[in-house]
Simulated scan of single mutants.
Amino acid sequence: MRAQNRTNFHPATFFLLGIPGLEEVHIWISIPFCLVYLLALIGNCALIFIIKTDSSLHQPMYLFLSMLSLNDLMLSTTTLPKILSLFWFNDREINFKVCLVQIFFIHSLSTMESGFLLAMAFDRYVAICNPLRHSTILTHGVIMALSLAIVLRGVILLTPHPFLLSGLPYCKTNVIAHTYCEFMALIKLACANTRIYRLYGLILAFLTGGLDFMLIICSYVFILHAVFLLPSKTARAKTLSTCGSHVWAILVFYTPAFFSFITHRFGHSIAPHIHIFIANIYILIPPMLNPIIYGVKTKNIWERFLKIFKK
């Protein structure tokens, strides 16, 4: 396909390039991508169903987990169908407005995911550091209020993204060297001074994911302090085991997120296909691994899953 490099300040359509340099093997790359998507759909749907139908799991940690699973379903569905369409049918075309909508959902849902991980860290902090007041602090009303605040934060802070991008002139090219529409990928196509836009994105990333991560670290400092005050090794190990799944979920989400963020802004010497693989891992892997992590490491969920499977 010929790249359209003519002067076009407001192109109606953009073209996704996919993974530069690996166009010939897109069909093979699509196989693990499709499997990851199917596992994410099955795992998160199963997790939501188990938590919804088992009254013993209607606790703060699991309620936040069900919201995280719903968020993961939406996040992976925002990108994977179009990526698979690109790989299988060479469907590179994407309407400019659809591209802006995709950018909004990707970034707002990623912000919400970070918020739900913070809420789960707060739940662990209260459960370990103040166990006698856990049920009175994290009531259903508080859980709903926290969840609503997380969703509103993601929507309100990320709503300016598509409006800022729609006002930029795009006269360099209308070919996006990526598998999906992304804020920084589109900024690079603008033929205008985008310093203020990049600064806005940087500040926003710090106020959401960066701040959430620092608060999660602080909560675990207090948790570790409380755990090491326990009298026996058995009690310490049992208490820490309740945090294991959450710690793995944090690592799975934040590790590729930080790599993707750093390579976007500072990794100019990194090969494009490596950068795009990291960006896809950030979108694809957490929705797939979160149900597996919690299903395997949480006894109640695993037993409930086996019961359903046997039926």
Rank of each mutant, 00 (worst) to 15 (best):
L35H: 02
L35I: 15
L35M: 13
L35G: 11
V36E: 06
V36I: 14
V36P: 00
V36M: 10
Y37W: 15
Y37M: 08
L38I: 14
L38W: 07
L39M: 12
L39H: 06
L39V: 13
A40R: 03
A40D: 03
A40I: 02
L41F: 09
L41R: 10
L41T: 07
I42F: 15
I42W: 15
I42H: 13
G43H: 09
G43M: 09
N44W: 02
N44S: 04
N44G: 04
N44Y: 03
N44P: 03
N44K: 05
N44E: 04
N44I: 02
C45E: 05
C45F: 14
A46N: 14
A46T: 15
A46V: 13
A46Q: 15
L47H: 02
L47I: 03
L47T: 11
I48P: 04
I48G: 05
I48E: 03
I48S: 05
F49I: 02
F49Y: 12
I50Y: 06
I50F: 07
I50C: 07
I50Q: 07
I51L: 11
I51T: 09
I51R: 08
I51W: 08
K52Q: 11
K52I: 05
K52F: 12
T53I: 06
S55E: 10
S56F: 00
S56W: 00
S56A: 03
S56M: 00
L57Q: 09
H58E: 11
H58F: 07
H58Y: 08
Q59F: 02
Q59D: 10
Q59K: 14
P60H: 07
P60E: 07
M61G: 04
M61D: 12
M61H: 11
M61V: 08
Y62P: 02
Y62G: 02
Y62T: 09
Y62Q: 10
L63Y: 09
L63M: 15
F64E: 01
F64M: 11
F64Q: 05
F64G: 01
L65C: 05
L65P: 02
L65N: 03
L65M: 10
S66Q: 15
S66G: 12
M67P: 00
M67Y: 12
M67Q: 12
M67L: 13
M67H: 13
L68I: 00
S69Q: 01
L70H: 02
N71T: 13
N71R: 08
N71P: 03
D72R: 00
L73A: 06
L73Q: 06
L73F: 06
M74I: 12
M74Q: 07
S76R: 08
S76V: 15
S76A: 13
T77K: 00
T77R: 00
T77Q: 04
